[in-house]
Design a binder for these strands. Structure first.
Lengths: 190, 190
DNA sequence: CGACACATGTAACACGTTACATGATTTG
DNA sequence: CAAATCATGTAACGTGTTACATGTGTCG
């Protein structure tokens, strides 16, 4: 959806060639999400099929320049007016990874969480470093995107810390509930 | 990747039919991410092709039961040993939506952010309510998944609040830098 | 038996990536 | 001119969804 609506959004400011849309989209989002040039053309073809964009009048031969249609403007306006992803959240591979790991015997949860935490911390530090660079201060859009990534990375690390505490406590509870797992004097119950 | 590795992970505990894997996967993740049954079969076919799973010995006619291969066990172990998504973050439609909106004339950023905030707040409240239900306390995996969703929703709302402040400040800065936009006495510069 | 439900599987499509093909333009 | 580059487009594949088809068992 990001690209399906992002490309018409860029065309609202005027007709563009496919090759112009890729760097423009990336610039507006701070280069965080590199855009596949092949996907630009296939998406434009689908958008034209669906009536959101259309080839603009003859300008250069063999280079179709696209402009947004009235229907496209309506769709872009709707994209800004309606909240995104109200419904089911996207599958989070990290959460699924941890959730399945806790019930598989032989997985060292502490090591798993620490490995993930180190990776997430590196990502967070990368973003923090990026934010210090002067280029970030200029562009409001890029600032917002970068801070979204920062907030998400911070939440992920807090969650991992939370998981570690939870898992440790669950292990203690299991040790208490199943005392046969710890050394005991002979004659103890069970 | 979640399903491509999640299904072999479930098979580590023993052979299963395709129809058993869907509810099992959903139960382990608290029903947060409903799994398409069609995808279970296509994924199992690909996993068999790639040597991660194989049909277990003849049990019931016309119902292939799958078990994980040695290669599959290695892949599952690697999934738990290596951190997920170290590289580029997934495209965040909400962040892209806002980033593009700030540079399109005529978009009411304040209304946009408030609409999104209300939707995110509803999601957060849904998760908070779910957490109070007794079913959540039992299952450690489900608890971790739910808290992941909670942490992410909270981060999203904090980010939206942050965006609102940023956008408001940027609007003020623009008003100061371009005073012709506000009523001025005749004869003022430009 | 007929209706229904269920498990399995496939087809069609959307969306995303990588790689390659084609034609035009630039450049040595 | 020949080579390199660029813009455009397509093909193949992975992953995900929806819908349909097929066979099997159950139940009234």
């Amino acid at each position: 959806m990001s690209i399906k609506r992002g490309l018409p959004t860029l065309l609202v400011e005027g007709p563009r060639y496919g090759a112009e849309l890729k760097p423009e989209f990336e610039r507006r989002t701070g280069g965080t999400w590199p855009l596949n040039i092949g996907q630009v053309y296939t998406t434009l073809a689908r958008l034209q099929r669906d009536g959101l964009v259309e080839p603009a009048g003859e300008d250069e031969p063999r280079r179709p320049r696209y402009s947004v249609t009235e229907h496209g403007r309506v769709e872009v306006a709707a994209w800004f007016a309606e909240p995104v992803r109200r419904d089911a959240p996207a599958r989070d591979e990290l959460a699924i990874n941890l959730a399945l790991a806790v019930s598989v015997p032989g997985v060292d949860m502490r090591a798993l969480i620490q490995t993930q935490r180190a990776a997430s911390l590196r990502v967070l530090q990368d973003y923090t470093r990026l934010k210090r660079e002067p280029a970030a201060a200029d562009d409001l859009a890029w600032t917002l995107v970068l801070e979204s990534l920062l907030f998400n990375a911070e939440a992920e690390i807090r969650w991992l810390d939370h998981c570690e505490a939870r898992v440790a406590r669950a292990a203690e509870d299991r040790a208490i509930a199943a005392p046969e797992a710890v050394p005991m004097r002979a004659g103890a119950r069970r």
